[in-house]
């Protein structure tokens, strides 16, 4: 599972020397590179977590992978062919609620489907029941809870069976209990539909619970790759679970110290530079 795609099957997703020029900071007029020469390779069926302090460029990376933004240099390849612009082969689950409020839950899931209306509806219904929301098809998004909305968001991307599923801290705004239920749901869908997933988070517990391997992003580059070798299904009660989390936390602290978190971190360090010690 922790095969990084260098051998065997060609990687489903690969990124070569990705650089995202500069992030202009309107407050101080300074510019800082967000991503510099980043490379990544994800093989079929893998669940990779990208972990990093806030401001390290995680979301920027996902946006480029999804095609919502373009890097200033480098390439994004899906199954060997270079990609520019968004498409249903790379779908994203956002942290924010991104459902269309004027469509019912069922219509939201059916949005990207093609074919006769009846088939689309049946397909949407099928994926809604996979995420535990059968019977909610006719509801409007504002009538359901935040956790249910993210379930719909999962259903609408899984329904498109993208080559790569991109997840941008999708459960970040949910309460702890709902969040754990979403982890279980995601893992069961991932196993059932053998989906390839890139999951961005800043939570080491989430990373250890979900990932085959964790990539630590700091200062615009992956600084370390840490495989998570705990057997599945994983349990937080496993005596190896929290040591793995602690190990990840320490590694994260270390790379953040060495390379800075990102734009925000660096500015803080600069501000501290002037303080006499």
């Amino acid at each position: 599972m922790s095969d990084n795609g260098q051998t065997g099957d060609p990687p489903v997703l690969s990124v070569r020397d990705l650089t995202m020029g500069f992030c202009h900071n309107s407050q101080n007029g300074r510019a800082a590179p967000v991503l510099s020469g980043l490379s990544l390779s994800v093989s079929r069926g893998e669940l990779v977590c990208v972990l990093g302090p806030s401001g390290c460029g995680k979301t920027t990376l996902l946006k480029i992978l999804a095609g919502f933004a373009a890097g200033s240099a480098g390439q994004v390849l899906v199954e060997g062919s270079p990609k520019a612009g968004p498409g249903p082969d790379r779908c994203m689950v956002f942290q924010e609620d991104a459902l269309f409020p004027w469509l019912t839950v069922g219509e939201n899931v059916a949005f990207g489907l093609t074919g006769p209306r009846k088939e689309k509806r049946a397909e949407a219904e099928r994926f809604l029941s996979l995420v535990g929301l059968s019977g909610f098809s006719g509801c409007l998004p504002h009538e359901i809870s935040g956790g249910q909305k993210q379930r719909v968001a999962l259903a609408r991307v899984f329904a498109l069976s993208p080559r790569v599923l991109l997840m941008d801290e999708p459960f970040g705004s949910l309460d702890a209990l709902t969040r754990r239920a979403m982890w279980d749901l995601l893992l069961s869908l991932w196993a059932e539909l053998s989906q390839t997933i890139v999951f961005v988070t800043h939570d080491p517990v989430e990373a250890v619970f979900l990932a085959d391997r964790v990539l630590l992003l700091a200062g615009g580059r992956f600084r370390r790759e840490i495989p998570v070798n705990l057997p599945r299904p994983r349990s937080r009660k496993d005596f190896r679970f929290f040591p793995a989390v602690t190990g990840l936390e320490e590694a994260l602290e270390e790379v953040s110290r060495e390379h800075g978190g990102g734009v925000g971190e660096k500015r803080k360090i600069r501000a501290d530079d002037g303080v006499p010690s």
Partner: peptide, 21 residues
């Protein structure tokens, strides 16, 4: 932008984005 991104990601073309999103 989140809605427009979502629409584009789910395969809506230029006209689809205008009329459906």
């Amino acid at each position: 932008g989140l809605w427009l991104d979502s629409g584009a990601m789910m395969g809506a073309g230029r006209a689809g984005l205008v009329f459906r999103v």
